[in-house]
Simulated scan of single mutants.
Amino acid sequence: MAPPTQSFVSGSVNKAQQKVLLGKFEACLLCGAIGDAWGSSFENEVGVVNDTTTYYVGGKPAKARKWAITDDTQLTLATCEVLAAGPFDPARLGQQFVAYFRQGQLTGLGASTLKAIHDTEAGIHWTQTGRRGQFAAGNGAAMRIAPFAFYDATTSQHLSDACRITHQNDDAYAGALAVYLAVRAALHQTWTGYNNLLLLLLPDLPDTNLTDRLRELSCLPPDATIAEVAQLGNNGYVVNSVPFALFCASKIRQLGLANLLLQVIATGGDTDTNASIAGQISGALLGLAGIPTELFLKLKQLPEYPWMRKIIDKTLLAGF
């Protein structure tokens, strides 16, 4: 195999540190996929509604729950494939999204990403695809940006380009940048899980509505709960979802992955994306040892897992 044209951050460290970083890459993706799959059947639920007009023999049956990965994981894997192939090219990323779409490998696409795919199919240049303005303030770019954090060659222009092919909006970019910075902070241990993650991110973020929300959350007392913060908003609007997911990830040392994701999902809203982003950041901090066995085994039972595993392994191989 030819030497990779774009290396992991492990390129400047010794073999032992490299192994740890590659494990964190794997854990980042797996924990994100676990959050995505677990949260996918709870999206936009706001709690149990008491139905007093219908009588159920033996009690009202519980809603069937089934783990299933969605575009949160699928588009992240597409990003991995493009980064593993060489220096980042936003046009190639757009084409990778199209390829996944044509292969039926994308589930639950947001309007901005779907428009970008159709625009790309129509031959529109990547700088003009997707949505722009207030209708592009979704979290689609933030949910797939994490792999960039593992490459030293990543620049702010790369992040901006990766975002703008689907979401041409300042808050959408700020959300993607915040997730990228959080993963980097976990990798370089400037965030240990005990210091204030949100305060750490603020100096490097542009002045946006999303940054204002993060600043507000960074001032909350240490005993503020996930349920309390969800009251500010946890839907697909990036100003709500990304700060909420970052706040949740900041509780990983206190709660552990299983309890953290359980609490994220219990608040409703954009459960798959919120849990996926919180999972990605948590995985980058904890590494493979932080994944509960029962959650990993449940992920492995999904029919898409072999495909997911193949892309992760291919990306890991390209990182050496």
Rank of each mutant, 00 (worst) to 15 (best):
A149N: 07
E121H: 06
F148E: 08
N139A: 12
A146Y: 00
D119N: 09
A136W: 00
R131M: 13
A142N: 03
T120C: 11
T155E: 15
A136Y: 00
G138D: 12
W126S: 09
R131S: 12
R144I: 11
G140E: 13
D119Q: 06
Q157K: 15
A153T: 12
A137L: 02
G140S: 11
G130Y: 06
T155P: 05
Q128M: 13
Q157D: 13
A153G: 14
F148A: 05
H118G: 04
R144P: 11
D119I: 07
R144M: 05
F150R: 00
E121P: 10
A137F: 01
A137K: 08
A146G: 13
G123S: 09
T127K: 15
H125Y: 07
G133Y: 08
G133I: 00
H158F: 02
P147A: 04
G138A: 06
H158V: 03
G138N: 01
T154Y: 02
A141M: 06
A141E: 01
M143L: 14
T154W: 00
R144D: 08
H158E: 05
T120P: 10
P147D: 01
A136Q: 00
G123M: 02
G138L: 05
E121V: 12
T155N: 06
A141G: 13
M143V: 15
L159P: 15
Q128P: 09
F148W: 13
F135Q: 15
F150C: 07
Q134M: 09
R131A: 13
N139F: 01
W126G: 04
T129N: 07
H158M: 10
E121G: 06
T127F: 05
A137P: 06
F150G: 08
